[in-house]
Design a protein around this nucleic acid. Structure first.
Lengths: 237, 237
DNA sequence: CGCTGTGTTGATTTTTTTCAATCCCCGTGG
DNA sequence: CCACGGGGATTGAAAAAAATCAACACAGCG
């Protein structure tokens, strides 16, 4: 559904219709016929899967050059809305499909992009299922920083760069992403701040004070190709 | 990584090496070079993503004709092991790739299969992030039943069929799938049983007593193309 | 300058986990 | 055939985590 990539097949968006979005404006409604795919040109968007009773799970945040609109069914089963003012390019699925069939390189790039989406979802599932509230918030901060670094063309391991972050989404959005309530997100931020790992500088901005400590708390070294157990079968009670 | 499909490209496994697995035997170790892809011929397998400190998130259970081995990186970042005695067919990635490049139909089938994996992961993320322990267990029972129905070629909406289920995996495996502890899984089963929705008939077998009630608890009508909010933007506090 | 909506903090309740004890199924061996 | 043992499963009690309910703070905006 969402995601990554600056790839060959993105040229299908050259002839695409541009569309501007205001914060919280909806690009894709879950349930709509899946006729188009989109490329993010500017701004941040949010993909979420609404439940039947008002609950929703935010699945990912989209940045410049991310792609969104994949689905196996003939209707979208996720919602996409703008977080910041944004510009997207929309192209019909058919045009994309025609672009892909002829060109093995484009095909491969497209499949690789889909894998990356998949791996992001696996990371999310791991957070939701296995990490504590504090850990999830720490991972989230690092995740956002990582995405910012990427979208600025910087190395994701540029350690000293980008220690001030803006979180353009609401606490509710973060909560629905992390499977927590907004109060729990606030408290987790407060605890992480109390531990000296970061500092909330008013509004939705923050400053990372101890990147190493934050990474330790998160139990994560990097994203997309996260550090994992090499082979050892983990023995547990 | 894991999953679904009885599809065109599966013919690449005709010339594949068969391998038999005993319960808990590992087919793919996270961290191994990703040289092969597999098709499940018989039995049940389990895909999981191990964390750094022994935590693990089970990502899916695999049944006959499911496919596993996808990854964007050159190493697997997930573990696959047998739950029941199983038989798999292994083929090199290269053979699969060669099979796909020439054939748009196979390509499309492959991409569609990847979408289905993706949608299963989205469902999992929704459960992990938004549902209570009881709901997760109810969804899990319905999910397993759904997979059994599919693998038997029955209609997933055959309501009265298949009311007795065998859960071949341990409570710990279920717990790691649902993001709970094994005791919580036990308690949730007990509560659902007390509510008269199912009955544990010794060992790892159970009997569904009230399918409708179970679906209500789960908040799910069906899988793979789950019921979702049609359009309405959900207003919430 | 007050209003409104988001965010934070506090107190309490609920849910889940943790720790610990038993149970029970099942295979084994007497 | 039945006692025995062992690992998984269940249940209980206590602790911890997160959610809920409620009040307050604060920023942005008319």
């Amino acid at each position: 559904m969402p995601n990554d990539a600056g790839d060959v097949f993105l040229d299908v968006f050259e002839s695409a219709v541009r569309r501007e979005l205001q914060p919280s404006q909806v690009l894709i409604h879950a349930g709509d016929p899946a006729e188009q795919v989109f490329n993010i040109l500017d701004g941040m968007l949010m993909v979420s899967r609404p439940g039947l009773d008002g609950r929703r799970q935010v699945l990912s945040f989209l940045f410049t050059d991310n792609f969104v609109g994949l689905t196996a069914a003939d209707r979208y089963n996720f919602t996409v809305e703008a977080v910041t003012p944004a510009v997207v390019a929309g192209q019909s699925r058919e045009v994309l499909n025609r672009r892909l069939v002829g060109d093995p390189a484009a095909e491969r790039a497209f499949i690789r992009m889909t894998y990356r989406v998949l791996e992001n979802l696996v990371d999310l599932a791991f957070s939701l299922g296995q990490r504590t509230a504090r850990e999830r918030v720490a991972v989230f901060v690092l995740y956002l920083r990582h995405r910012y670094l990427l979208s600025q063309g910087l190395s994701p391991t540029a350690d000293d760069a980008l220690l001030t972050l803006n979180l353009p989404m609401s606490r509710l959005d973060i909560a629905d992403f992390l499977g927590l309530k907004k109060e729990t997100v606030s408290r987790s931020f407060a605890q992480i701040e109390a531990a000296g790992l970061l500092h909330r500088t008013g509004g939705r901005d923050l400053e990372i004070r101890d990147l190493t400590g934050l990474r330790e708390l998160a139990g994560v070294l990097d994203f997309a190709v996260p550090a994992r157990m090499p082979t050892a079968r983990c023995e547990r009670a």
